[in-house]
Computed example of a mutant assay.
Amino acid sequence: MRTFSRPGVSLTGLATALCGALALSAAPAQADSASDAAAAQIAACKPAQPCAHPLPVKVVIVSLFEIGADEGDTAGEFQLWKERRGLTMRIPFPQSFHDLYYNPETQVLAMVTGVGTAKSSAATMALGLDPRFDLAHSYWIVAGIAGIDPHDATIGSVAFARYAVDGDLAHEIDPREIPKDWKYGYFPRGTQGPNDTTTKVEPSGELFTINPSLERWAFNLTKTITLPDRPEIAKERLTFTGYPNAQKPPVVMEGDTLSAMTFWHGKRMTDWANDWVKYWTKGKGEFVTSAMEDTGVMQAMTYLDAAGRADRDRVLVIRAGSNFTMPPPGTDAASYLLRENEGYAGLEAAVENVYTVGSAVVDELLAHWDKYETTTP
Rank of each mutant, 00 (worst) to 15 (best):
D36C: 14
P131Q: 07
S35G: 12
Y102R: 14
A48Y: 06
G20F: 07
A37L: 15
Q30G: 00
A26P: 00
G13R: 14
V60H: 01
I42C: 06
T74L: 13
K46D: 11
P131G: 03
G8N: 09
G116D: 02
G68H: 13
V112T: 13
A52Y: 04
T117S: 06
D134V: 06
Q30N: 03
I67S: 04
D73P: 00
A37H: 08
T12G: 01
A34G: 09
S10A: 11
P7N: 12
A39R: 10
E77T: 15
L14C: 04
K119N: 09
I91C: 01
Q107K: 15
A17I: 12
S10D: 15
L14K: 13
V59R: 02
H53C: 05
D73W: 05
I42D: 02
H137Q: 15
N103H: 11
L127C: 04
A37N: 12
A110I: 06
T16L: 12
Y101L: 14
K58E: 06
L14T: 13
E83M: 05
G13W: 10
L135F: 04
F97C: 02
V59P: 01
H98T: 13
L11N: 10
V9W: 09
P54Q: 03
P7A: 07
P94R: 10
Y102L: 10
V9N: 05
L87Q: 09
Y102D: 11
A123Y: 13
H137S: 15
M89H: 08
A29D: 11
P50D: 06
L18C: 07
A37G: 03
M89G: 08
A15W: 06
D99Q: 11
V115D: 00
A69V: 01
Y101I: 06
F78L: 14
P92L: 07
A23G: 03
Y139D: 11
L127N: 02
L24H: 11
K46T: 10
S25W: 05
L80S: 00
A44W: 03
Y101E: 11
L80G: 00
A123W: 12
A21K: 09
G68P: 12
P54C: 07
G114W: 01
I67D: 05
V60K: 02
L80H: 08
Y139G: 03
A38P: 06
T12D: 06
D130W: 02
L14Y: 15
S120R: 04
Y101V: 07
P131Y: 08
E105H: 14
A27Y: 02
V112F: 02
P56W: 01
G72T: 04
G8F: 09
Q49P: 09
D32Q: 15
Y101P: 00
P92V: 10
A52R: 10
A29Y: 01
E66L: 14
G114Y: 04
T124S: 14
A122Q: 11
A110P: 02
W81N: 03
G116C: 01
G8R: 09
G86K: 10
V108F: 08
W140V: 12
E77A: 08
A17V: 14
V9E: 15
T74D: 07
A44G: 04
V62C: 06
L129W: 00
K58D: 01
S35L: 15
